[in-house]
């Protein structure tokens, strides 16, 4: 890494500073989305409460578990690469990817259920927020998985070691953000009444 860049890199944040800029902006996007959701819920509290009951909480809870577990796996992956154990790191990353895949499958089942019930963005305000928020997050899971997968490929080529693991930390940081957003989103949309 160039000197120019490392000058501005706070040690407190693991991984590349660039990903943190990106993470902060992503959190800003989700943050605005959540605030708008909260305001609209206050304005239409009965309608929101009524349709919230139609959401599948069991699947949502399972997905929460999947993402948290998967987040734990990337922590193990970072830990492994710090000990210079590349193959272990790759295995943990695969495990994290499996968690992400599980999330996508469960979420797709949920969407299938909702779409076949004729629910669309235009059905009502609650479903508009439910669909757009979760869909936006869904896309982030895919992006996070692509990032993790790119790291797996680089790791297989031997790009990382106990001296150079910024890339792994960078991907892990992003994956934690995807997890964090879901941890806020799930209670906000599925549970809080």
């Amino acid at each position: 890494m160039s000197k120019a860049h490392s000058e501005i890199e706070p040690e407190l944040l693991p991984g590349d500073l660039a990903i943190w800029l990106f993470i902060f902006m992503e959190l800003l996007v989700f943050g605005i989305f959540f605030i708008v959701y909260a305001i609209m819920r206050l304005k239409n509290i009965e309608m929101f409460n009524q349709y919230q009951l139609t959401l599948n909480r069991e699947l949502g809870a399972a997905n929460t578990l999947l993402l948290i577990t998967s987040s734990y796996f990337v922590v193990r992956a970072v830990h492994a690469i710090r000990l210079n154990n590349v193959s272990n790191c790759i295995h943990w990353l695969y495990a994290a990817l499996a968690g992400g895949t599980g999330f996508l499958i469960l979420k797709s089942l949920e969407y299938y259920d909702k779409f076949s019930a004729g629910i669309r963005l235009s059905t009502n305000t609650f479903y508009m927020f439910y669909l757009s928020l979760t869909l936006f997050h869904f896309l982030h899971v895919i992006l996070g998985m692509l990032i993790l997968f790119a790291i797996v490929i680089k790791a297989c080529r031997g790009a990382y070691s106990d001296q150079n693991y910024t890339g792994v930390e960078t991907g892990a940081s992003y994956w934690h953000m995807v997890d964090l957003v879901w941890i806020i989103l799930f209670p906000l949309v599925y549970i809080i009444r």
């Binding site: 800003l28 996007v29 708008v36 235009s122 927020f129 757009s132």
Partner: peptide, 15 residues
């Protein structure tokens, strides 16, 4: 167009 665009359009274009 459907009125959800007022939300999606406002939020995303504000960014």
């Amino acid at each position: 167009t459907p009125d959800y665009w007022q939300w999606l359009g406002s939020i995303f274009s504000a960014l």
